Simulated scan of single mutants.
Amino acid sequence: MSTMSPKCILIFSGKRKCGKDFVTDLLFQRVGLENCALLKLSGPIKKKWAEANNLDFAKLMDSSEYKEIYRAEMNKYGEEMRNKDYGYFCRASIEMYEAEKKAVWIISDARRKTDLKWFKERYDGIVKTIRVQANDEVRKSRGWTYTSGVDDAETECGLDTEETWDWVIQNDGSGTQLDDKLNEIIQWTQENLK
């Protein structure tokens, strides 16, 4: 399949255990797998970390406790790379997930203002940002425990002050609100695919 320019890019952000993966997986299925690439900016970080340290890449990518053991070290590595080149993992994820073959890009895990900046600089006019939120009690019920050095680091707090979200999804378990927001996002996506 040949390469193409994306027609719309949806960038999601949110705290640990807010349900970003759940929401983006649901959207990915609804938009249509043939049109869509689901990118995880953390994918290249975890892949390189797994290779360098002889770890299980698949386990680093899931929501298990396995990745929590290595989270702080991976975050440090990711910060070092971003300080050298803030677009490094954005480009690496596009390549890793072969996004250039798809019209719709869903980025499931933006964590910094530079993540948003990089995509907006290159794809102005086709980028929408979405913040996924859940209250702390819901996050705890999903396995979240506050961890110093992780939950107070830029990887969790870098977008807390961002106020320009195109959509905010409160993901506390109410399907109606989630469905309404996803329908709005899908409608925007379909309009851009015309």
Results as ranks from 00 to 15, higher is better:
Leu41Asn: 08
Ser42Val: 03
Gly43Phe: 01
Lys46Gln: 02
Lys48Asp: 15
Lys48Gly: 14
Asn53Ile: 11
Leu55Ala: 05
Phe57Lys: 06
Ala58Pro: 14
Lys59Trp: 05
Leu60His: 00
Leu60Tyr: 01
Met61Trp: 07
Met61Pro: 12
Asp62Phe: 02
Ser63Gln: 14
Glu65Asn: 08
Glu65Cys: 07
Tyr66Ser: 12
Tyr66Phe: 12
Glu68Asn: 14
Ile69Asn: 08
Tyr70Pro: 05
Tyr70Trp: 12
Ala72Glu: 13
Glu73Met: 13
Met74Arg: 01
Lys76Phe: 07
Tyr77His: 03
Gly78Ser: 15
Glu80Ser: 13
Met81Val: 15
Arg82Glu: 04
Arg82Leu: 06
Asn83Phe: 10
Asn83Lys: 11
Asp85Cys: 12
Tyr86Asn: 08
Cys90Ile: 12
Ala92Asp: 10
Ala92Glu: 14
Ser93Met: 09
Ser93His: 09
Met96Ser: 09
Tyr97Gln: 06
Tyr97His: 13
Glu98Leu: 11
Glu100His: 11
Val104Arg: 06
Val104His: 08
Trp105Lys: 02
Trp105Gln: 03
Ile107Ala: 00
Ile107Cys: 01
Ser108Gly: 10
Ala110Lys: 04
Thr114Tyr: 11
Thr114Glu: 15
Asp115Trp: 03
Leu116Trp: 08
Phe119Gln: 01
Lys120Ala: 13
Lys120Arg: 14
Lys120Cys: 15
Glu121Cys: 11
Arg122Ile: 11
Asp124Gln: 13
Ile126Pro: 00
Val127Arg: 03
Thr129Ser: 01
Ile130Asn: 00
Arg131Cys: 03
Val132Thr: 00
Ala134Ile: 02
Ala134Asn: 02
Ala134Val: 03
Asp136Met: 08
Arg139Tyr: 04
Lys140Trp: 11
Ser141Glu: 12
Ser141Gly: 12
Arg142Asp: 04
Arg142Ile: 03
Gly143Cys: 08
